[in-house]
Design a protein around this nucleic acid. Structure first.
Lengths: 120, 120
DNA sequence: ACTCTATTCAACCAACTAGTTGACAAAGCC
DNA sequence: GGCTTTGTCAACTAGTTGGTTGAATAGAGT
């Protein structure tokens, strides 16, 4: 599973884990507090949290026998950066192609999706 | 594997698949063109593309026996939206907490742990 | 028709995942 | 000291994943 980005994406591929992240965005919570709403065992949730922790999405504190879990927002930036890079690249390419087609022959620029120049 | 968001995250959890997306951001390519740079078999790449397709990240066209693969940029928005929601939420909460701690006692604003959960 | 190229389908395998139960450590409560 | 709460670790299981090879389909090139 090598790199962090893989771990992050993999961690968020599970709906339960995304749910936990959603819950933690509201505020820190202990393992058993997090486990309470779910049908699964506390151990299962503990495992999920371990996955999130190894991905750097979450960190655990210490309060007696409790382990308050805290969401680490910075890691999201890693993902966002990766996504934005290729999204923009693809978008730019798409628009370039659109322009080229339009220049070549207005009749042939029928590349399916959204046409842009709405002023007819 | 229920929902789309899970499929998208899961699809991008694999470095080879992320690599394919990166390649496709530059421009469309056939399966064998995409497979060429890798040590794995064409079948393996075909499988990867199937995963990306099922996640809605990619679509396949038809050019004789070739299947030009095309990156679908829109799906990225789904992820970005999910991420942004919780990143901002967590960030906002963090800044709020920081302000509170600073107001209480400038010496103690080192956070990391803070008692009193928000729990229900 | 024969062959080559491009792609997928099918069966199989090793490694991982998400869950289980049971045992255990650590820290408060009585 | 003994019990309870909180969390993790270990062993096991069923299902999924990423890879393999071999066969099948589909369209050109000759």
């Amino acid at each position: 599973m090598s790199d962090q980005l893989s771990r992050v994406f993999s961690a968020l591929a599970d709906p339960t884990r995304r749910d936990l992240v959603a819950r933690l965005a509201v505020g820190d919570a202990t393992v058993s507090q997090l486990a309470a709403p779910y049908a699964v065992s506390v151990q299962a949730v503990s495992k999920h949290l371990k996955v999130l922790e190894e991905a750097g999405l979450v960190s655990k504190g210490r309060d007696a026998q409790r382990r308050p879990v805290h969401l680490e927002a910075e890691v999201f930036d890693l993902m966002t950066k990766w996504i934005e890079r290729y999204r923009q690249q693809a978008e730019a390419r798409y628009q370039r192609l659109d322009a080229v087609l339009a220049e070549m022959d207005p009749d042939q620029s029928d590349r399916q999706r959204h046409a842009e120049g709405t002023a007819s």
